[in-house]
Design a protein around this nucleic acid. Sequence first.
DNA 1: GGTGCTA
DNA 2: TAGCACCAACGCGGA
DNA 3: TCCGCG
Length: 327
Amino acid sequence: MKALQKAAASKADTKRRKPATSAAPAQRRAEKAPKNVVSMKVAITHPDRIVYPAMEITKSEVAEYYAAVAPWLLREAMRRPLSIVRCPGEIEKACFFQKHEESSLGDAVHSAKIKEKNRKTARYLYIDSPRGLVQLAQMNAIELHVWGATIDDPDHCDRLVFDLDPGAGVAWKRIAAAARDVRAALKKTQLQSWLRVSGGKGLHVVVPLRPAAEWNAAHAFAEMLARTLAAQSPQNYVAVAGEKNRENRIFIDYLRNARGATSIANYSLRARDHAGVALPIGWEELRRISSADAFTLHDVPGLLKRRRRDPWQDIGKIEQALPAQPS
DNA sequence: GGTGCTA
DNA sequence: TAGCACCAACGCGGA
DNA sequence: TCCGCG
């Protein structure tokens, strides 16, 4: 997350979308009143507040977006502990992370007790309904990040994630090739994987595990695979976070595979100027797209209506486990 | 965005 | 009751 | 231990 500045946006900064024509007083009153998101009965306050200045996207458009993609989004994100990025002002101006329960988020935004590393327990957010998702939008949640585990079994990883994060100057072709390389390496260990564009710069390769794995094993396996690829192709890949010499290379980020770590949820918006979406795609689609932020708030609801089949349809059906650790 | 304290 | 301050994560690795 | 990153 590039700009999670705490700097409070001053009230004067709050922009509203101007009505297309000069509004009659009655209309103006109607604009000011909270809008309900159709069929979800969630009141959206400040519906015309601009959230994405570059795209002139308003808060109510964000809420309508989440209402539209809710069934798809929930398929993977439901009942997983969430970290949300809330932007009460404009994106990249005053956003903050939240992962713990707050009673005022809405009656359909739930929380589950989960043990933290320090042995204490805390209540983590989760949702299991479209209504909960829209209530999060009302609370200015823009990005949703999820654990690779569910609240029902937080100690086991059922989704392994490789985040391919390109350094400066890496062409799209090489990012796409990296995803295929990760897929091929996984296939060698009999693991099938699924793909999504992050909505930002990179691609995510996701591996379902059923039965779910111990976090230690998941992390160790992911690290080994990332380091192996980096050793085989050091001109293309690095497996070390934050390395300055990432320039012209792709960081294979395996660090999401730790208990408590999160990755962007499918269909989540990104809090970046172009309103990109983290979209699951089929492997065969990879050659037809030209960037990881090719899909936006404006495209995705229509695209979902046209989609015959969910590219991740079978991710929850397949039974596959990590290979036995070489001893 | 919501809460709770203060003037 | 209007205004205001304050709150809303965390773990990792490198320096 | 602090800082930057994601």
